[in-house]
Nucleic acid binder design. Structure first.
Lengths: 144, 144
DNA sequence: CTTAAATCAGACAAATTTATCTGATTATAC
DNA sequence: GTATAATCAGATAAATTTGTCTGATTTAAG
């Protein structure tokens, strides 16, 4: 059971945060990421391949290959990963599932949810990956 | 694609709001609800059966049967429906999917998401179904 | 009493999401 | 150059969610 993102997206966010926190290394293998984050290896591998296509992640093939961020972590925001994997639908759709929910034809929660959704969007937009580095390291250290 | 609730839960919330907005009627049939809300009939029927077991909805069997709220709409809150269908996991689980996310071992978004989550909980808790009556009627009128 | 219209119960089916497998390709290291 | 270890690509499988079907039961109405 996930909160707002799909499992794929959760894993993608975790993996990218991990990469940002390990910029010192040249590349990190899918296996290391899988082990450290307790994610099925083949699954996280697929997700990182997707993010490579999206231009967020760089991949190095062959022996001693692996993944790294494709750009400066200061130029990547969490919303970019969400957009690439789940899309931005959750920031447009009605929280109650009503069709055509908009200010002219709002659902009973439209106003209140709109505010929260906007703050959630900010949360994913205002800071870049570099800002999460230390917090990620601390968290990852305590997973296993 | 849903926002935070499962489709089942969205439908359940819509259906219960509909019932609250039609307290004047004795009972409302699953068919009427399905048509007015554009929900598959058999599906909403199942959901309302579940909510009947949960004690939120009352059901009248046989010809001219249907559903109604089991209690005073002033005593039912949206969180009750969410709890009955999806459970309250989304208000406890980590938004990034990390295990053991808590103040002592927080994920990078723990603090910020915690605030939003708390406000989302309030949104579902502070008002009772009676308060949504008019807004629901307006919205339902403009669906078809 | 019979018919009709509704919920109820449980199996079934379809669609989506999550996860795994197989083999090909690539590139490093020895 | 050969072995090794990694990504890549696509098929397959498992699990979950969403939706449908069938028939039984219940009850109101004529």
């Amino acid at each position: 059971m996930t909160v707002i993102f799909s499992k794929k997206c959760e894993y993608g966010l975790q993996a990218v945060l991990y990469l940002a926190a390990h910029m010192d290394k040249n590349v990190v293998s899918a296996e290391e990421i899988a082990k450290k984050l307790n994610i099925p290896k083949e699954f996280v591998s697929k997700i990182l391949q997707n993010l490579t296509e999206s231009g967020i992640v760089y991949s190095k093939k062959g022996k001693s290959g692996g993944f790294a961020l494709a750009k400066d972590p200061q130029k990547i925001k969490l919303i970019d990963i969400v957009a690439a994997i789940d899309g931005l639908g959750i920031f447009k759709s009605c929280v109650l599932g009503f069709p055509n929910c908009n200010p002219d034809n709002p659902c009973p929660l439209h106003g209140k949810w709109g505010e929260l959704r906007s703050k959630a969007y900010d949360m994913l937009t205002e800071e870049n990956l570099d800002a999460f580095k230390e917090k990620t390291l601390k968290k990852v250290m305590n997973i296993n």
